[in-house]
Simulated scan of single mutants.
Amino acid sequence: MAEYLLFATERYALPILQPLADALQASGHGVSAWLVDGAAGARLPAPVRSVGLREAVALKPRAVFSAANWVPTFLSGPKVQMFHGFNVEKRDDARGHFRVRGLFDLYCTQGPATTAPFRALAAQHPHFAVVETGWPKLDPLFRDDGGASAALRAPANGRPTVLFASTFTERLSAAPHLFDAIAAEIARGDRYWLLTLHPKCAPELFDRYRSLVGPNAAFVETEQLMAAQRAADVLVADTTSVVSEFVVQHKPVVTFRNRAPKPHMLDFDAPSQLPTMLAQAFAPSASLRDALADYANAIHPYRDGRSSERVLAATEALLEGRFGRLAGKPLSGRLRALQIRADLGYWRPG
């Protein structure tokens, strides 16, 4: 049995790490989680152990899996980037999904759309390896979820179910703009709504959307998001990466002012258009169905619920040296590692 460490800086990373924890435990390994910043105080269910900085160092993990943009490099073991979302083009590539920070040894990519760019980057910066594994967060969409999604859908009593999700980025968020339109849809009652917001959204937005809870709507916490996606028939959203997650199921998505609208989206600009867009989503055309399938295959073609196992296999291949000798980390990465030490107040040898 080996010891492995999970690392996260936000609560929304927990559903990414949980399937990986399950796969590690199923293989007989010990799993600890070091959760900091926005994830501090959160926990993954036992038998995952919650640890702090000194415990994480003393653990000497065989590998560290990070669902954050950074990871403390003074920890033992290779550092594996799990990603905290899909590439939804909120920012340009150099500042967004394809930014190489010089901290990670292995990038486990989600599908062809991200694998090719990262392999091109690895050719330029050979201090990391790239393996396409799929994304552990989506494993529960394609495995037995213990009835979690069925429980969320049960109050619908046979009605079609809509999930609303919104990003926290103020200039991109649909939540402030669509509240009245969604409230009207919920009041009508012909569909059941599951409502969720990014944990970083303003508290007053949470209060407004929670006020809609009743016989026609429920509010879903971040930890329930995967079950909610499985339960819903249609998604209403904006530029959140939940759009891509939902599309992997080949289900229609309605997007409000998406930053980079694509053929698989039913994008709209005016809140008054919401009823019309929902009608289209619940009766998708053949061309829309084809676009959904094409996009899903590009970003995440895996529907076997075993991405976590592929991540573990890729990590083992790295540990065994099957990717050859990696180059040393660049100066930018070493400087960033020093800044992380300073931020954490830790200067002892790793």
Rank of each mutant, 00 (worst) to 15 (best):
A8D: 04
Y12M: 12
Y12N: 12
L14P: 07
L24G: 12
S27V: 11
H29M: 07
D37F: 13
A46Y: 11
S50V: 15
R54Q: 03
V64T: 15
T73E: 05
H84K: 01
K90D: 09
D93F: 11
T109E: 10
T114K: 12
R119K: 06
A120R: 15
P126A: 02
K137V: 08
L138M: 02
A151Y: 02
R153V: 05
A156D: 11
A156L: 10
G158P: 01
L163R: 04
F164M: 13
T169D: 12
A174E: 04
P176S: 05
I182W: 00
A183P: 05
A184I: 04
I186R: 02
P199N: 11
A202S: 05
P203I: 03
Y209R: 03
G214R: 08
E221V: 00
T240M: 13
V243C: 11
V247N: 08
V248S: 12
V254H: 08
T255R: 02
F268P: 12
A270Q: 03
A270L: 00
T276M: 01
Y295L: 01
N297C: 15
I299K: 13
G305N: 10
E316L: 06
G321L: 03
K329C: 10
L335F: 02
R336S: 10
A337P: 02
Q339Y: 09
A342E: 09
D343A: 02
Y346K: 13
